[in-house]
Design a protein around this nucleic acid. Structure first.
Length: 477
RNA sequence: GGCGCAGUAGCCAAGUGGUAAGGCAAUGGUCUGCAACACCAGUAUGCGCCAGUUCAAAUCUGGCCUGCGCCUCCA
């Protein structure tokens, strides 16, 4: 049952009806991570919402082809006094070679994704693997008159375009140059929005990764990789390009400029941007030093999927404020949700297909309404509260989880972090089992003072107990 | 200075002109010795502010206020 996706398009600043260029195939490109450090949970908010978008489209019977780049070269940094390539900086910090560090953090990134149930795009391309293609495309741009050489570097001439600002609505005369004091003004540029396609004159002396090119030994500018990787793998017509809002200008604006200059026609129809995760001081940022990673959440005892639920409860176009109080709320919510699903007897009754489709349709409506994940979760709660039999409820939960990806029906999921759960050694196990037996006897004898004393004693060993209908259980925290 | 996103209960949040969904927390209750779990109940005369349009506005229009982001590192 195909429904129309209503999706906000940064290009038009409006919610539009989505139409794939080559229905039912959807070609989707995502700006991937710069692999010089761990991703923080704010970065991951974008990837979670892009994951939901991909899965929602597949749920709506599209076939999504998705490509992501890995930026392992060329991004300059400004969080040091005198810039260095980010990769070089990371390598120095970790005493490793640039390529080792890139691989290390790429693996770390996909590890985080796996913990958050973010599906890895089928095509992932490191920028360093496609430098030949960057050089070829830059050559074409020069031949077509869109690029010029100055001061040893190749620049894109933004004045050659009629509508450079389509995406951002900026006006050239209003743009401030060097708004941030750490940015140097480049006197080689003809226009202040021109950007470098190929560097041979690096202001960074210890640039380690270099390639030969017709314009001299150097390295690519930081916009060209996304255009080339996308066009090479997804062709001349892109349906959806994703990224965080901070990429709109200049990165995505420049991608449009160079791609359409190269192709000679419109390139991408829909631009999907995810708002930032903020903390009390504003946007979460690696430059600020301390930042929250998935590992930190795990160490603090949260299952990473609590964070995924936290994001799904909000809307991708709304700024979201992160606090541990808020995450604690969601941890409770997630825990309750899991136990409600776990209590379902999936063998009870047959699946009521009519009702299944009614709820499925409501769930899809929520997603198709500009990815209203918060409303989609409400449909999930409505299912759990409904008078449907357990078999039907379970089937619906399983179905919804194709998009939500909260591991709702996985047997071993817990709201607290499995990584934070300590393993009890055999001695402690024996000790606890003995004490519990003693306590059970005391309770039978209605000697509650003794029973409570034993509970306190176990608590002192970090053991928490729970009396359930099936007997007493315990966990070590 | 310009451009963009947002502002609904303690927190997250739905709502797209017809009289405020849902979740978490807190509160009261039921249940088992007590905890915990589970379940039940009620919880915004109000939707940043001020005008306007309308029989009717959180929803439309105008103005303003506040927060966040971008303007060559960033998701």
């Amino acid at each position: 049952m195909r429904k129309t996706l209503h999706i906000y398009n940064t290009l038009s600043k409006k919610v539009e009806d989505f139409k794939a260029h080559d229905d039912p195939i959807v070609r989707m490109y995502t700006c991937g991570p710069t692999v010089y450090h761990y991703a923080h949970i704010g970065n991951l908010r974008s990837y979670i919402m892009e994951d939901v978008l991909e899965k929602a489209l597949n749920y709506d019977d599209y076939k999504v082809k998705r490509v992501m780049n890995i930026t392992d070269v060329g991004h300059l940094t400004s969080d040091a006094d005198e810039g260095e390539d980010k990769m070089v900086k990371g390598a120095e910090r970790e005493h490793k070679t640039v390529m080792e560090i890139a691989k290390f953090y790429e693996n770390a990134f996909f590890d985080d994704c796996r913990k958050l149930n973010i599906k890895k795009p089928e095509t992932v391309v490191p920028a360093t693997s496609m430098v030949d293609e960057f050089i070829r495309v830059i050559g074409v741009l020069i031949d077509k008159g869109y690029a010029y050489k100055a001061g040893g570097n190749i620049y894109f001439d933004t004045a050659k375009l009629d509508n450079y600002y389509v995406l951002s609505n900026q006006k050239e005369k209003e743009l401030l140059e060097g708004v941030r004091d750490d940015v140097e003004v480049d006197s080689n540029k003809k226009n202040k929005t021109d950007f470098v396609l190929w560097f041979t004159k690096s202001k960074f002396e210890n640039q380690q990764l270099k390639w030969d090119s017709p314009w001299g030994t150097g390295y690519p500018g930081w916009h060209i990789e996304c255009s080339c990787i996308s066009m090479k793998n997804l062709g001349e017509y892109l349906d959806i390009h994703c990224g965080g809002v901070d990429n709109i200008f200049p990165h995505h604006t420049n991608e449009i400029a160079q791609s359409e200059a190269y192709l000679g026609h419109k390139w991408c129809n829909y631009w999907f941007h995810v708002q930032h995760l903020n903390d009390q001081t504003g946007k979460m940022s690696k430059s600020k030093g301390d930042f929250l990673t998935v590992s930190v959440l795990e160490e603090k005892g949260y299952n990473p999927l609590c964070y995924r639920l936290f994001c799904l409860q909000s809307h991708y176009r709304k700024p979201l404020l992160f606090t541990f109080d808020a995450l604690d709320n969601v941890k409770n919510q997630y825990s309750k949700l899991l136990s409600r699903v776990a209590s379902l007897n999936k063998a009870q009754g047959g699946i009521d297909h009519d009702q299944f489709n009614v709820y499925k349709s409501r769930f899809l409506d929520a997603l198709m309404n500009d990815l209203n994940t918060s409303d989609a979760l409400t449909v999930l709660y409505d299912v759990l509260k409904s008078p449907l039999n357990d078999a039907t409820k379970y089937a619906l939960v399983e179905d919804f989880d194709k998009v939500l990806s909260l591991s709702l029906t996985a047997e071993d999921t817990r709201a607290h972090s499995p990584a934070a759960e300590k393993q009890a050694d055999d001695d402690l196990k024996t000790f606890v089992e003995e004490k519990l037996k003693e306590r059970t006897d005391a309770r039978k004898a209605r000697d509650f003072a003794k029973a409570d004393a034993i509970r306190d004693e176990l608590a002192a060993h970090g053991v928490t107990i729970k009396d359930t209908r099936e007997g007493t259980t315990w966990t070590l925290q």
